[in-house]
């Protein structure tokens, strides 16, 4: 078969090839995003996402959505503007969570023996669904950044609460009060993570008393909006095809 001949000879074959490409691209995209996003997220979200005794009402709620909205914004830009596919955020989060679960189960538990109840990942799928559906309904980057980004940050704490609330029950232990998450962190020794590097419940939001989580979530949503714009542009730039001579679009 010479290069000038078509690879397919019938419509049925063309459809089959197109479908094969779908799965190929989807799989490669999924695994490539998994690798890149996972490393990005470990380096930026790091301990806040690793340990249950870092999942507090202030910094975890603030930091995780902000550093997590990056790849979803970029992949959305590619999949939406090129294919009108509103699955960029969900694809990223499914990839990230798969990578995280492999890491937590095989390394944190299987290799180092931390129980899963101290080292499970944060839940981000509801956030991703909001981001994708807002993009699909609005078809607008600005609206997705503003409404989607805010929703992304706001739903983060509620969507994690069913999993972390049980670990926030108080315990009296040797004359001090702990939450179960604190106690896990104390019991299951992390030689390389001394207590003082644990950044929780710090900040200047104390005037809000015990209703600090919603305030943190709003703040996180606002910053997510800005980060969304930034990474959406990265995504657009990254998915450009100007290097192909006859496609300048």
């Amino acid at each position: 078969m010479s290069a000038s001949q078509s690879a397919v000879r019938s419509r049925a074959e063309a459809v089959a090839v197109s479908r094969t490409f779908d799965w190929m691209i989807l799989f490669v995209l999924f695994t490539a995003v998994l690798g890149g996003y996972h490393i990005h997220f470990m380096l930026t979200g790091g301990d806040w996402d690793f340990w249950s005794d870092w999942k507090d009402r202030r910094l975890w709620v603030t930091v995780v959505p902000i550093v997590a909205i990056t790849f979803p914004a970029a992949v959305q830009a590619c999949l939406w503007w090129r294919y009108r596919l509103p699955i960029g955020a969900t694809l990223c989060i499914l990839a990230l969570l798969l990578g995280e679960w492999i890491n937590r189960y095989m390394n944190f538990w299987g290799w180092t023996y931390f129980p899963i109840n101290i080292c499970f990942p944060s839940q981000l799928i509801p956030s991703a669904i909001i981001l994708d559906v807002v993009l699909m309904l609005s078809g607008s980057m600005t609206l997705t950044a503003v409404a989607g980004g805010l929703g992304w940050g706001l739903i983060f704490y509620p969507s994690n609460w069913p999993v972390i609330a049980p670990l926030h029950q108080p315990v009296e232990y040797n004359g001090m009060m702990f939450t179960l998450a604190d106690l896990s962190g104390y019991h299951y020794v992390r030689t390389g993570t001394p207590e003082y590097i644990r950044m929780v419940e710090k900040g200047t939001l104390r005037t809000f008393g015990k209703d600090v989580a919603p305030v943190s979530a709003f703040f996180s949503g606002f910053v997510s909006v800005i980060i969304y714009f930034l990474w959406h542009f990265f995504g657009k730039w990254f998915s450009g095809t100007g290097f192909i001579a006859d496609d300048a679009s």
Binding site: W54, R57, W161, A165, P166, T179, V200
Partner: peptide
């Protein structure tokens, strides 16, 4: 997604009425 999370937040609070912030 929104309704489910709102509901689950309430249901979780009913199930665990006493929770405290992380201690540090």
């Amino acid at each position: 997604t929104i309704v489910a999370n709102a509901y689950l937040m309430g249901a979780t609070n009913d199930e665990y009425p006493v929770t405290t912030p992380l201690q540090a």
